[in-house]
Write a protein that binds this DNA or RNA. Structure first.
Length: 504
RNA sequence: GGUCCGUUCAUCUAAGGGUUAGGAUUCAAGAUUUUCAUUCUUGCCAUAGGGGUUCGAAUCCCCUACGGACUACCA
């Protein structure tokens, strides 16, 4: 078997969509799994849709996720250049080759001509298709006399090169995920291979480059399945059938509500990003949120994406990139589209968050604290992180769970006060304050013993002591073990907070 | 409209002719806890419908329904 070589070939028309990220990930996993190469090729043959910054965005996003390339526009390699606009001259030669062999022809029809034709057909409730049945009545090198064609070319008339599909032939595509797909050529139209602006279309450039770059497997989205027969025919036309790559068309990522392909708009509407990184549209200045900026860990995004349309057939759900590489196979990719599940994405991030070392979480949380003008010892912050990480999905949620470790509560939970703050509570709190003040060693254990002893002596339930104290210290009925909280705050802060609530 | 692809709990999915159709997320309940959360236990919830083939079908075949993609000198 030839060496596995796969490519991720996005078009720089905007930020990389999360579906595109998954395609890149599957290509990467497949390449690593088989000890092959992963290339990044930029398909920028449509000058009209080029968006500045998109290429850089794609590179940065994949790097953030840990998807590495062996060759590509940003790292170079033996098949350079890897940007199609930089490969422009070679496509023309291949188009000419096809024309010479009778696999393609020149079409002089203008966009207006084609529009008119479509309208004409529409009137009769028919669909116009440029194919074997209609090409004879169009303006092209098949219908025009040779002299006329030469004259038009000499006169600089614009023209496109179209593929000449043979009439009524069965074309089969062998797909690694879907099996054999057969289509009759009469249903396909004579696709433009080379545009009048001098650039190839996706179809031509893609085949020429995949061949030149010795791509062994084409792993791409399902939206390409309908044009796969054309691609197969192009390999045949070029005589490259024996080195034609194998195809694998991935199921689509669907929007979580309703139906349809996940699109740019859905993300912020439904509360989750569709882009790996935040993106600001250079033209409209519109900002779209990204996973990175929303506080997702790249490992969590990779893990979640890997399992959206593929699974290793075991109950385990948490995998490192290395494990994914080890387990990955195209055979286990599902055929149907997958809906994005926001809750599960949160769960994945939660799992990765609690697995992170406290010091690392502390470093991230310290930035949030700094934004609020709070500085604290990193050991202390790490301890706080260890206490609250179980109850959050994102580092950004830690403040809500841990603010009382840094600042006294600004207000007290009213419902809790109503329910737990009784007639005798102020007296109890005063007792607690004096007991705690009397403690020489303000340790968890001592606080615990003292409070339990007091509660027993009083004959009241522990809750009547602990819950009001909790409200005094944290502001509500939530948070970690109270003895730990008290010990961390220190005696002065604790008594101060008791005084505060007594004053209210 | 046409072509192609698809369809198992709400969601991601397992089960490649023989299981009480399994797991995870969500949701609900219980246990634990001074509180909240965690954790643990339990529960709810699915083979789109109809025909075949077979001793036996989620699994193979056909039809229907539904969903999606494609149908540009975009990728």
């Amino acid at each position: 078997m030839n060496k596995v070589r796969v490519r991720f070939a996005p078009s720089p028309t905007g930020p990389l969509h999360i579906g595109g990220v998954r395609t890149a990930l599957y290509n990467y996993l497949f390449a690593r799994k088989h000890g092959g190469d992963m290339l990044l090729r930029i398909e920028d043959t449509d000058r009209g849709r080029f968006v500045p910054g998109a290429e850089e965005y794609i590179i940065e996003a994949l790097a953030w996720l840990g998807i590495k390339f062996d060759e590509g526009v940003h790292v170079g390699g033996p098949c350079a250049p890897y940007r199609q606009s930089d490969r422009k001259p070679m496509y023309r030669e291949y188009a000419d080759l096809l024309i010479a062999n009778g696999w393609a022809y020149l079409a002089f029809d203008t966009p207006e001509d084609l529009d008119a034709k479509r309208k004409e057909y529409e009137q009769e409730k028919k669909i116009f298709q440029y194919d074997a049945s209609t090409r004879g009545m169009m303006c092209n090198s098949l219908t025009l006399p040779d002299s006329d064609v030469r004259q038009r070319i000499a006169g600089g008339a614009p023209y496109a090169v179209r593929f000449k599909f043979p009439a009524d032939t069965e074309i089969t595509v062998n797909d690694l995920i879907r099996g054999t797909v057969t289509v009759n050529s009469s249903l396909l139209d004579d696709k433009v291979l080379f545009k009048s602006d001098g650039m190839p279309t996706y179809h031509l450039a893609n085949i020429v480059d995949d061949h030149a770059m010795k791509i062994s497997h084409v792993i791409r989205g399902e939206e390409w399945l309908p044009s796969a027969p054309l691609h197969v025919m192009l390999y045949k036309a070029f005589g490259w059938e024996d080195t034609m790559p194998q195809f694998a068309h991935l199921p689509l990522l669907l929007k979580p509500d309703g139906n349809g392909k996940l699109s740019k708009r859905d993300g912020d509407r439904l509360g989750f990003p569709v882009f790996p990184l935040q993106w600001t549209d250079p033209a409209t200045k519109e900002v779209s949120s990204g996973y990175r900026e929303n506080g997702y860990f790249p490992e969590a995004v990779v893990n979640m994406l890997a399992l959206l349309g593929w699974n290793p057939g075991m109950d385990q759900e948490l995998f490192s990139m290395d494990e994914l590489v080890d387990l990955f196979s195209l055979e286990r990719i599902s055929k149907s589209g997958a809906k994005f599940d926001l809750k599960k994405a949160h769960w994945f991030n939660h799992e990765y968050l609690i697995a992170r070392p406290d010091e690392e979480l502390a470093a991230l949380f310290a930035k949030i604290l700094a934004d609020k003008g709070i500085t604290a010892e990193s050991v202390y912050v790490a301890r706080v992180c260890s206490l609250v990480k179980d109850r959050v999905n994102f580092v950004s949620e830690m403040w809500d769970q841990a603010s009382f470790f840094f600042v006294a509560p600004q207000s007290y939970d009213e419902a809790a006060m109503k329910k737990r703050w009784k007639e005798n509570t102020p007296a109890v709190m005063r007792d607690v304050k004096s007991i705690l003040t009397g403690l020489d060693d303000f340790s968890e254990q001592n606080i615990h013993d003292a409070l339990h002893h007091y509660s027993e002596e009083k004959g009241s339930g522990l809750g009547q002591v602990m819950i009001p104290l909790r409200i005094a210290l944290v502001g509500g009925t939530f948070g970690p073990d109270l003895q730990i909280v008290a010990a961390m705050l220190g005696k002065d802060e604790v008594t101060g907070r008791i005084n505060r609530i007594l004053a209210v």
